[in-house]
């Protein structure tokens, strides 16, 4: 539903009264939105230290040992956390051909199906992410030991990145569960025809829009 909540390009003054990053469906989504606002500054940090590395290497002939690995870590973190962020804002791209053709009742079925599938995906991924993180944070003998990069600087970024991936997947699982709950327990929409395909892109979740929970300020 918030696909168009992305700051409308070209018209910053029109979109700036609404923060594009506030989650839209549940309180958890809004919390994720707030967290994303903070995490987004990692990208700026990554840019700044990249420029620092260029200056040090080209200008002063003394390349750093830590910038490349840190930049990859920062960007990987922002990529991983971008998953829950996009889920909170319903920014993940979907194909809407069938959705636009059918009536509200069938849309409701599709919503239920998609919410279940999203939840199953996130849950299975979280399990796999947990196994991956456990291996990266324990020695073969089962002691706590973080996997490191093996470079001269040797930071524990591999273990941390895997931890961030697990965190992102776990948050997505909770988000998906909450969405599922909302879709199932919202009043079902009355049987109706297609709601005008012209407005097809305006809302992606026609059915849940009927519930009070979704009437968040835009």
């Amino acid at each position: 539903m918030a696909e168009h909540d992305v700051a409308s390009p070209g018209l910053p003054e029109a979109s700036d009264d609404h923060d594009p990053n506030l989650g839209t469906r549940t309180p958890l989504d809004r919390l994720v939105g707030k967290g994303t606002r903070a995490a987004a500054w990692l990208v700026l940090l990554a840019m700044a230290i990249s420029v620092f590395e260029v200056v040090m290497r080209y200008g002063l002939d003394s390349p750093t040992s830590w910038v490349h690995e840190t930049v990859i870590f920062l960007v990987a973190t922002s990529f991983a956390l971008g998953g829950p962020a996009a889920l909170a804002n319903n920014r993940h791209i979907r194909v809407r051909v069938l959705y636009d053709l059918v009536g509200t009742r069938f849309r409701y079925v599709l919503d239920c199906f998609n919410d279940v599938m999203t939840f199953v995906f996130c849950l299975a991924m979280s399990y796999a992410g947990w196994v991956m993180f456990w291996r990266a944070s324990h020695s073969p003998l089962g002691e706590w030991q973080l996997e490191r990069s093996g470079t001269s600087w040797n930071p524990p970024f591999p273990a941390l990145t895997k931890g961030v991936i697990l965190f992102a997947l776990a948050v997505m699982t909770l988000q998906a569960l909450w969405h599922l709950y909302q879709t199932f327990f919202s009043p079902r929409p009355p049987e109706g025809g297609s709601e005008g395909s012209g407005a097809s892109d305006a809302t992606s979740d026609a059915a849940p829009d009927a519930t009070a929970d979704h009437k968040e300020p835009r």
């Binding site: 992305v6 700051a7 700036d16 923060d19 594009p20 990053n21 994303t36 606002r37 995490a39 987004a40 500054w41 990208v43 700026l44 922002s78 990529f79 956390l81 971008g82 998953g83 829950p84 962020a85 996009a86 804002n89 920014r91 993940h92 791209i93």
Partner: peptide, 20 residues
């Protein structure tokens, strides 16, 4: 505010691109 909005948009857009 401008910086925050730009960074938030970056993060959201990357989340969308990367997860595909």
């Amino acid at each position: 505010t401008l910086m925050q909005r730009a960074l938030s948009q970056t993060m959201n857009t990357c989340g969308m691109i990367i997860w595909i």
